[in-house]
Design a protein around this nucleic acid. Structure first.
Lengths: 247, 247
DNA sequence: AAGTGGTCTAGACCACTGC
DNA sequence: CAGTGGTCTAGACCACTTC
């Protein structure tokens, strides 16, 4: 583990422990550098990590302040459904409703960077938390990954993990669009809610480490089953975010 | 403007222009440093900015890759409703439905860091995009900012901007919880939808530059009126994000 | 083996905050 | 005015990717 990650970890623990209470000030960078026998640059990397997690904030000239004590279980990192469920203490399961190859639509071709009409794999899954159905997932996979997806166990818990272990594929980057929609008849039946009742929709495009689009998905969560959490700031700058004026 | 912001701007323009196509590679840091007559550290700050915007990705040992060409109009930065609307080309308006002081509930006391029972200001607003109602906003302001809020024009377009201009208050940090709920009778009437139809709910706590909680809010958007957009990656590290393994 | 990004250091100057 | 964070430099070494 890198030096700055250790320092960030120490600071995070200290914040959680209450050594640096919420609303209070962090030690100066110079102070932290001496305490940890590191250069100021390394200390700045550490606090930048905490800032990215939303735990601390800063303004030029003033000491850093503590904003929160919980790492937001959120969107700074990309997690699969199974990963997220596990981290929240749930047991994830799921089953494939349908799986078939078909030519892709023009819009999908754009999102997956493939030729229009090229073959893609269309998969629908029902996913559960602690046995209770919470999510109807509709995923379109690019043709090049389709064989590996078809070899998966239909009841497989984590598609992400299985694809990593079978073909070394890493889902590295994600883009997400989140809104609310009404449940259709099929979704209502699968999720055990009334038709027209609210669902939280997450449309996603995922990309490999090399920047190659892997899948695009339309996931619909039963209302009340999940909440997305985000922390942000004005004018977010990764290396030491700065407070700006409203515009 | 800082040197690294200029370099980031140049790179962003080049990506948008198609000089560096999506899925392609960026020049090396050393190359960029020479071209811009800057040190490698400054170049790294620039590309870290683009990575935070979700435009580029990186892995140790390989060239950076281009992931997208549009800056995600999203949650890396904190925007008010009016700011967001303006950036999307809409005209925002709104009106106060009710405004009254009351003692705060225990849960609000925690979120606002005030004593339980301390007086807060409870405000409901209906907000519109191009004249069409899209959002019912229910905000609870901490007592110390209540007088400034009460002095605002009830039809005021941007509360954020007005509070900055009147008392210098900056909404610097935000925490957001997003889910879907069914419209109640009142919301349905105000937004012109049927009761029970889906609404996108955003619960928000906002904090000043100094780390002092200012307001907590429960905002409900008519389905179809807005979409939240997020870009992320595995193991987001602010200074040059790194691709990790799924876990 | 060469190229490239990830980490770290030591020092410098400036702009802003807080007293 | 002293303290502090924001920016920038020049150089170093390592781990990993690419060819």
């Amino acid at each position: 583990m890198a030096r700055y990650e250790q320092i960030a970890g120490d600071l995070r623990d200290a914040i959680v422990r209450g050594d640096y209470p919420i609303g209070g000030r962090l030690p100066s960078e110079a102070d932290l550098a001496v305490r940890h026998s590191a250069s100021r640059g390394t200390v700045r990397q550490a606090v930048a990590l905490l800032a990215a997690e939303g735990l601390v904030g800063s303004r030029q000239g003033a000491r850093r302040i503590v904003l929160g004590s919980e790492r937001s279980q959120s969107f700074t990192e990309l997690h699969s459904f199974a990963q997220w469920a596990r981290s929240m203490g749930y047991r994830a399961s799921g089953s494939v409703l349908s799986s078939r190859r078909r030519p892709c639509a023009p819009a999908e071709a754009v999102r997956l960077s493939v030729e229009p009409g090229e073959e893609v794999l269309d998969v629908r899954r029902l996913r559960r938390l602690d046995g209770e159905p919470v999510l109807v997932e509709h995923t379109v996979y690019a043709g090049w990954i389709a064989p590996a997806v078809e070899r998966l166990d239909p009841e497989c818990e984590s598609v992400t993990q299985e694809l990593y272990e079978s073909v070394g594929l890493v889902f590295a980057y994600g883009e997400h669009l989140i809104d609310a929609v009404a449940a259709g008849a099929g979704e209502a039946r699968l999720l055990g809610v009334r038709r027209g009742s609210p669902l939280l929709r997450q449309r996603r495009t995922t990309t490999s480490q090399e920047g190659r689009p892997v899948e695009c998905s339309d996931d619909r969560y039963r209302a009340g089953s999940v909440t997305f959490s985000i922390r942000n700031s004005t004018a977010a700058n990764p290396l030491g975010r700065r407070a700006g004026e409203p515009g």
